[in-house]
Design a protein around this nucleic acid. Structure first.
Lengths: 181, 181
DNA sequence: GACTACTCTGACCGATCGGTCAGGTTCTGA
DNA sequence: TCAGAACCTGACCGATCGGTCAGAGTAGTC
């Protein structure tokens, strides 16, 4: 029975986002998603080629923004790269925190998938920028911890306003990062 | 065929640790672990009651240390709680970074398992201490980001000496956390 | 040699996974 | 009115999962 208004595609995507956020990508089955929407598993696979397609479509907007930030940083020197990267990443984390949340805890595993191969490289360049292009241990450690910490936790603040959260994160980043030499 | 020296138990545990760290808990099958050791899957389940038992035995020393830290913090006021929690947690993260690494990305999922229920509460108390018992947004955000960031990344620094890493993390924590009111 | 305890295995189990497919139902436009 | 596109489904597939079990090989003990 076809639905009166076939917005099933969007409903499936939303349900997948919710489930991934709660039980993780690997921990969520197509059956789970189908049940939440109230359709059959076959319907999920009618709208999406496979499980991975759900994830990539869910992440597309955030990834596009990340690529854009990466391009904006390329070629910048230490101080400028650090400032732009910090502000840009915080803004990105705040705007896409619901999408980031659903990857929580599966970055390492998912980044290994071919579809996300370039994200690995981008995040490495972002960390370098966070460190102000410095190779000192303190700068590198601070960069990695702050970046990973934000990525991991920003989804927790779903109840906060964008501006509030952005200010708090920016303050933290400015205190935590080591100024470039 | 029984082995001349039955150190299989330890070998299985070590292999499980290595596999969990690479492919995650859910992403690692008992067959994977058995293959790495060179025994049958049944042997793995002869030495360990089930898959979860592997994880809990792997985490036991780290968890015990975490409980101890939690008890040391209980009842302390803002400033002292923050200082002890920060130093204690950094020390813990450094010492157990290989064990923590193998949980990377699966904290949220695993903490939901009954066997780790108390860890959830401990980490909440730890975050409160990191925030210096303050309820201000900036303090709470900084506490959560730094704590999660360290937990998530300390496994990356397997090649560093304990003291080097401890100093870098302590410096970061002292800069990043918001002093209590 | 007989007995026992320990270690290990292949064969097997039910459940669930992602994914396929043939076919039924509804909508749409000529 | 009717053909075809779009949508949806139950039944099914092979693979893999965690876990069970009966029994075989080995080492020590009497």
């Amino acid at each position: 029975m076809a639905r009166a208004v076939p917005e099933t595609h969007a409903e499936i995507l939303a349900a997948a986002g919710r489930r991934f956020a709660v039980t993780g990508y690997k921990g969520t089955s197509l059956q789970d998603i189908a049940r939440e929407v109230g359709v059959s598993k076959a319907t999920v696979l009618y709208h999406f080629a496979n499980k991975e397609a759900l994830l990539t479509e869910l992440m597309a907007p955030g990834l596009a923004a990340l690529v854009e930030l990466d391009e904006r940083i390329a070629g910048l020197g230490g101080g400028q790269a650090q400032r732009i990267a910090a502000e840009g990443f915080v803004d990105l984390a705040v705007r896409f925190r619901r999408q980031i949340a659903l990857l929580r805890g599966e970055f390492p595993t998912l980044l290994r998938q071919p579809a996300f191969a370039h994200v690995q490289q981008i995040s490495e360049r972002l960390i370098a920028a966070f460190a102000g292009r410095s190779t000192h241990l303190a700068a590198r450690v601070a960069a990695l911890v702050v970046l990973a910490g934000i990525a991991e936790t920003c989804g927790e603040f779903g109840d906060l306003g964008d501006d509030e959260l952005r200010d708090a994160l920016l303050g933290l980043v400015r205190r935590a990062l080591v100024p470039p030499d």
